[in-house]
Design a protein around this nucleic acid. Structure first.
Lengths: 351, 351
DNA sequence: TTGAAAGCGGTACCAG
DNA sequence: CTGGTACCGCTTTCAA
């Protein structure tokens, strides 16, 4: 009925608890020696009872848990899942488990998650932070306590970090659109749309791109929105209803871009003939949309694996200076971007 | 440097460990009484040291971990993430955490995951099983040990389960397609495409649907495939290259359906004019595809929440008979299904 | 070759 | 009102 303990095994085998421990951990051949016969008896008892050592007790004793905490901002974006998949697969190979938390884009919950994660004896912590500044304190004490800690994507100092090239990606996107001839370019971005720095990184790249061809930023072409497809959709509609709508829209991630694409479809405009769309992440579905999405590819799984490797590295070498792994991204030009058609049309009517 | 322990707090406050424990757990007002002054001192010390009770030790003591294990078949299908999101959100409200494991559709790993999950003192276990039969043994001992356990989707006996209506959904899909006039209907399904029973449930519904209008199943219109979009794509191509291709294709889930849609696009056929497509799950993206996907809506988050509620229910009332929660699904007709065009054309050429 | 016993960090009972 | 202490299940040193 109840889980058998080491004690039960010992009793059944007629030995002491220590002996059971030795047998299980195969210390048989090192400094202790157990008779083959005794070992057999113990094994028998283990099988008979279906005994499995209690991981909690082992953790208390050993100080390790074979568990790494992972905090993602939002459970609804495939991009984060891909990162999680990378983390999980890398951890699996080492026999570690993932304790998954979602911040649901709420600063309170983000803070709370980090706190509960630290209360457990996690062997490492991988964070995809949205509200970095609020956590400075927590992170510092974690570093102080020498808890392996890796961030993903956020710019940070004196912490291990796996980063990718959102900024360079944004530059490439702007270059691409400008070369196609676009001059009225809209931007849909948002806080939840991830790592705040990169969000603004992209905003900066956007501004600078326009500047490079002598254009000022037209704030009326910028929409700041949430994280759901639906919010992307609404932002898209709002941009399309602009009196002088853009001929291209940059969207901060593929999820939101799907919403924007839908808005475009609904207005019966054609992509990319009437309007071009480009975004970031290259989630798996991106290539399968109709038309396939032009987007900045980010190897999310690799990002997750890289962060995990940083954790293991630090577990083994706690005194290393802060490490950084760079996972480069690159623009993939698919079917949602093309030359602008001047004069562009709205609702199918030439202006 | 190191995490402070209760002992450290006690020393700093000049009290015993017990007192610290009392203060922390607010037992102050029940059967023990602590001077306001002492409590203050302890609080001070706690803050000063940044003390946080060690969850592992608490678990060992209390026998509970405030953690629920969740096993999903595959990290790449948004449907599972939606379920996971439901689980996570429901758990959050109770202050529980998720230990996430992925079986990667590998029976070995599935078994192994269940094993490591049981070694930890999880308070409950939610399983999305692919290879149910292999785990019978494990599951039985879990039930024996009175470990709260809930399955999702799989048909099972004497275990708590949250199920949904894949079968009824499949019937509705067949009805829909037949009513539209389709007679050559293809099927793309696969093991990884989840819960095996439901997979065959759908196959059965498919057969019976055809039978109901006096048609025999044409096995050459059935493709058994894996779980990735790409495999769906290939299955789609293969069906389209059939000498007498179907006028409609039922796909076992939206992921695979995206692949099939791509195949259709690539052959320059129109959806739904040349070919209709219907599938299952209604992942968030489904409504945003072009055209929007006709699919059997399953409230995946609710499925996850329902399973979680079953866990809590059983934690509180261990002696309840096996519970079952039914989360109904329903067909959502969107833009990928329409009347067949006879004679149907392939590659745009009328036959 | 095996067993006794000391912790790991808390909790909660009992005595004072 | 507070402190001592046994125990949760396991590991590992030390002694037998």
């Amino acid at each position: 009925m109840k889980r058998p303990t080491q004690q039960d095994v010992a009793k059944l085998a007629g030995v002491s608890r220590a002996t059971v421990s030795y047998v299980i951990n195969g210390l048989t051949d090192s400094y202790v020696t157990i008779t083959d016969e005794t070992r057999e008896r113990v094994m028998q008892a283990i099988v008979e009872l279906g005994y499995q050592p209690d991981a909690t007790a082992q953790s208390l004793r050993s100080g390790t848990t074979n568990t790494v905490g992972l905090l993602i901002p939002d459970m609804h974006n495939p991009h984060y899942w891909q990162i999680a998949a990378g983390v999980e697969s890398e951890l699996q190979t080492k026999g570690f488990d993932v304790l998954l938390m979602s911040a649901a884009l709420d600063p309170e919950r983000e803070l709370h998650s980090v706190k509960t994660l630290t209360r457990r004896r996690i062997d490492g912590l991988i964070l995809l932070l949205t509200y970095y500044d609020q956590l400075r304190g927590e992170l510092d004490t974690l570093v102080q306590q020498r808890k392996p800690l890796a961030l993903i994507g956020t710019s940070a100092s004196s912490v291990d970090i796996a980063r990718t090239s959102h900024k360079e990606g944004a530059v490439a996107v702007m270059k691409h659109l400008l070369e196609l001839g676009h001059r009225r370019i809209g931007l849909v971005y948002g806080v939840g749309a991830v790592y705040p720095e990169q969000g603004t990184d992209r905003l900066v790249a956007y501004r600078q791109g326009l500047q490079s061809v002598g254009l000022a930023t037209d704030d009326s072409l910028i929409r700041y929105c949430g994280t759901t497809i639906d919010e992307g959709y609404k932002a898209g509609l709002s941009l399309l209803d602009h009196p002088a709508p853009p001929t291209a829209i940059i969207v901060i991630n593929d999820m939101l871009a799907m919403g924007v694409m839908r808005a475009v479809n609904e207005r019966e405009l054609r992509i990319p003939d009437d309007i071009s769309i480009a975004s970031f992440d290259d989630i798996e579905m991106a290539a399968y949309l109709n038309p396939p999405l032009t987007t900045v590819h980010i190897d999310a799984e690799e990002l997750g694996r890289a962060a995990t490797r940083l954790i293991f590295r630090r577990i083994n070498e706690p005194d290393l200076p802060p490490q950084e792994t760079f996972v480069p991204g690159h623009l993939i030009i698919r079917g949602t971007t093309g030359k602008p058609s001047y004069p562009y049309s709205v609702k199918g009517q030439p202006l």
